[in-house]
Amino acid sequence: MARRVNLLGGAVFVAVLLVWELLVRTGILSFSYLPPPSDVAGGLGQLIGNGELGSALGHTLGAALAGWAIAGVLGVAAGSVLGLVRPVWTYSMASLEALRALPIVAFVPVAVLLYGFSVQTEIMVGCYAALWPILLNTISGMRTEARMVESGAVLRLSRAAVLWKIRLPAATPSIVVGLRLGLSISLVLTLVAEMVGNPAGLGFLLVEKGQALQPGQMFAAVFVVGVSGIVLNGLVLGAARLAFRGQLAASGEVA
């Protein structure tokens, strides 16, 4: 897989930063607290230097990943049962549809009430948010092509072998999609929980710097949030490609 550096894309990005810098410096864009990119870079340097960023980032990623991991185990297990056992699906579908329709953000104050201003609140919210995409993608992934299952029967595979060798691998691309979506939403909701609930991590850092009228540092925190989302998604995809090369190649995920 030859990877080419996207020079044009990078050039556009740098150009946008330059224009932003110029517009702010020349006063054409005149918000009271809009920092130019150079101030944001300075803010980032300060946050790294005083150690605030490291501990906040560690806290947030830890909570988001913990919630996501719990959701991964629960979602794949429950999704497999729901996808494979027809009666369970029939009885649970109505409840699932109703719960799914509720905006996840509405659960943040509920979690704060239940778990207080603690890291548990963040993990619970992240877990709940990540559970949905993982669960639903696992369910749909488990609806294996009938002919594929029949091929297993014709070759006299046991039921366990059909599950292990045909159904689960066939569901893998869907499950990986669910896990990726779940991780990004877990990160988002963990940040929300930090803004309105537990005063810690990147979410709180962002709010705190805003209220302290430190726009450079605040924008730096926003930037770090964005980059960590991209990095996490890349890590999950990379790990999945290593572990399930064939499945993802077949679904066109690997070029």
Binding site: E145, R147, P169, T172, Q247, A250
Partner: peptide
């Protein structure tokens, strides 16, 4: 089966 594409395991 006739539909080889669905009978083989693509992974």
């Amino acid at each position: 089966f006739q539909d080889y594409a669905h009978s083989l395991l693509p992974w």
